[in-house]
């Protein structure tokens, strides 16, 4: 058995997804009502610049030829030029990506750190107060619009309690951003050994990360509880109990490792939610990530920017799913082995 070959095979399975994404984003640009060139050139464009854009996109050519041009642009990393800033879209996205990633990862750590223990506790003590608490948290969590949670965190922790800094950006204006190493302020400040900056960055990120985390906590806790319950009710747990294995062994080596598989599957969905919620949270907290970039671009009808945003988010999501698949292959020996 060869794990590496299996992981390699998983990688190739992502190719159809990427092809699908490229086709869909291409079709979306061509589905624009009226003349796409007008959209891409922006509302302030004159006849000449519209004509230039039309030539650049190849809109006067046949659809397959246009697609070929589009593919060529993608290969060169050319996502067009943002009409609002005049800079290439890919550059803008690249500078803003670390901010979004940092926010998403902190939110994810918070969500997993809360959801897994909650779900496991609820599953091992069904119909106790902790189980009911889990149920309430789970249902309330998914019901909270993430932008609404964010706003009221701001109201409570900034306006009333004055515990949080003003909800504007990644770091308070009195601090200077740490030297760029990873682009993650939390990590970069630690590398620089600047704990004051770390504290400031942490204070900024905690509210947006928690509001995002609360939103995805629910599906994770729910799935943890359900899959733990299912694992605990299965025959092999009975075998383990009948052979007198210790409680922790039964719970973790037998039940939890099996329960992990459906949780990993849910993680894909959780990331889908998070990348969407990113946009909303970044708007609320004026977070300088790619989500708020896309919102601003939408307002001024900066079409190339929006398109670039959708495409890069989708590619990011495919990469994340791939990572989850690889993780799954590591946990579950059965994957791809029946062939």
């Amino acid at each position: 058995m060869n794990r590496f070959a299996m992981i390699g095979q998983r990688m190739t399975q992502a190719i159809p997804s990427i092809i699908g994404i490229i086709i869909v984003t291409f079709l979306l640009t061509r589905a624009l009502p009226g003349d796409p060139a007008v959209y891409f050139a922006g509302p302030a464009a004159d006849e000449q610049s519209i004509a230039e854009v039309r030539a650049a996109l190849g809109l006067d050519k046949s659809l397959p030829e246009q697609f070929w041009l589009y593919l060529g642009d993608l290969v060169r990393g050319d996502l067009g030029v943002s009409i609002s800033t005049g800079r290439p879209v890919i550059e803008e996205l690249a500078t803003r990506l670390p901010a979004s990633l940092e926010l998403t990862l902190v939110a994810l750590i918070f969500a997993i750190g809360t959801a897994l223990p909650l779900g496991i506790l609820a599953a091992t003590r069904p119909n106790t107060w902790i189980d009911h608490l889990c149920r309430v948290v789970v249902t309330a969590g998914v019901s909270l619009p993430v932008f609404f949670t964010g706003l009221f965190f701001v109201y409570i922790f900034y306006y009333i309690a004055d515990l949080a800094p003003s909800p504007l950006g990644r770091i308070d204006i009195y601090f200077i951003a740490p030297d760029h190493v990873t682009g993650f302020f939390l990590i970069d400040s630690l590398i620089a050994g600047d704990f004051e900056t770390f504290r400031a960055a942490f204070a900024q990120i905690i509210l947006p990360a928690v509001s995002m985390g609360v939103f995805v906590l629910a599906p994770l806790a729910r799935m943890t509880r359900a899959s733990m319950l299912q694992a605990l009710g299965s025959d092999y747990i009975r075998t383990a109990q009948a052979s007198g294995l210790s409680r922790s062994k039964v719970l973790f080596a037998y039940a939890f490792r099996n329960a992990l598989l459906p949780i990993l599957t849910t993680l894909g969905m959780v990331f889908s939610f998070m990348l969407g919620a990113n946009v909303l949270v970044e708007k609320v907290f004026a977070w300088p990530g790619i989500g708020s970039y896309a919102v601003n671009a939408l307002i001024v009808s900066d079409f190339a920017a929006v398109q670039g945003f959708v495409l890069s988010m989708a590619i990011l999501f495919v990469v994340i799913n791939l990572a989850i698949d690889v993780l799954y292959t590591i946990v579950d020996p059965r994957i791809g082995m029946e062939g």
């Binding site: 025959d235 092999y236 009975r238 075998t239 009948a242 052979s243 099996n258 020996p333 059965r334």
Partner: peptide, 18 residues
């Protein structure tokens, strides 16, 4: 497991699959 032990029906599901 030490003094008294058990075996079950449907042995496939009675073993930890992973």
């Amino acid at each position: 497991g030490r003094e008294a032990s058990m075996i079950f029906q449907s042995p496939r599901t009675a073993l930890n699959p992973i």
